[in-house]
Amino acid sequence: MRWEAFLQEVRERGEYRTEPEAERAARVVLGLLGAHLVGQVRSDLAARLPETFALILLNPLQAAEPLDPERFVRATAAWIEGATDATATWDVSAVLSVVADAAGDELMERILLQLPVGYDLLFGRPQAP
């Protein structure tokens, strides 16, 4: 996926007024997501993202432990100036729904296997119980 197309999708889904707002959300969310994915799954996802975002995903901050979805949202809020849990939920959903589209169904299944229960909702891909 090209940079412009990825950011345009994030901007539309997040209803951001400017491209820098969408880019900031994408950088933070992908940095946090990269800390939770390992091995071939992370590499396969990076291959489907624009190069700059792929590098962010591949060189994340190291997570001491996997964050459940609620803590992932709180961590996102902590990294975005002025964000609240509500706005961070919006940011996470906007970015991860675009990531899910770029990944496709098979890779999304593999991604969700590496993440704690509940991330399917953040990606906009609810799983049957």
Rank of each mutant, 00 (worst) to 15 (best):
L113A: 14
V38R: 13
P116F: 02
H36Y: 07
L96D: 01
V28L: 03
A88G: 05
L37A: 09
M1Y: 14
R13I: 06
A26E: 09
V10I: 09
E4L: 13
L115H: 00
L96S: 03
R11C: 03
V117P: 06
R2F: 08
A83L: 00
L112P: 01
V117I: 10
V10T: 04
R2E: 13
R71V: 15
D68V: 01
S93E: 15
T89Y: 08
V41L: 05
G39P: 04
I56N: 11
G31E: 05
R24P: 04
E51C: 02
A100P: 04
A100I: 01
W79I: 02
P129H: 00
G124A: 04
D91H: 14
G31V: 04
R125Y: 03
A64S: 07
T89W: 05
Y119T: 03
L57H: 08
R48P: 05
N59W: 09
A46Q: 12
T52F: 07
T52E: 15
L49F: 06
T52A: 14
L7F: 10
D105T: 14
Q127M: 07
L45P: 04
R27S: 10
G39L: 00
W3L: 13
I56V: 15
S93P: 01
L45Q: 06
A102W: 06
I80W: 11
P129A: 01
E109K: 08
L121F: 14
G31L: 10
T84Y: 14
P129S: 03
S93I: 11
E15C: 02
A102P: 12
D120G: 15
P69S: 08
V10Y: 02
Q62Y: 05
F72G: 05
A78V: 08
I111S: 00
M1I: 15
V10D: 03
E12L: 15
I111E: 01
V38S: 12
G14Q: 04
F53R: 11
G39R: 00
G118Y: 03
D44C: 06
L7Y: 14
G104N: 09
G34M: 10
Y16G: 15
A54Q: 11
T76K: 00
D101K: 11
P50H: 03
Q114D: 12
P126Y: 13
I80S: 13
D44A: 14
T52K: 08
Q8N: 11
D105F: 08
F53W: 12
T87A: 14
R42N: 05
E106S: 13
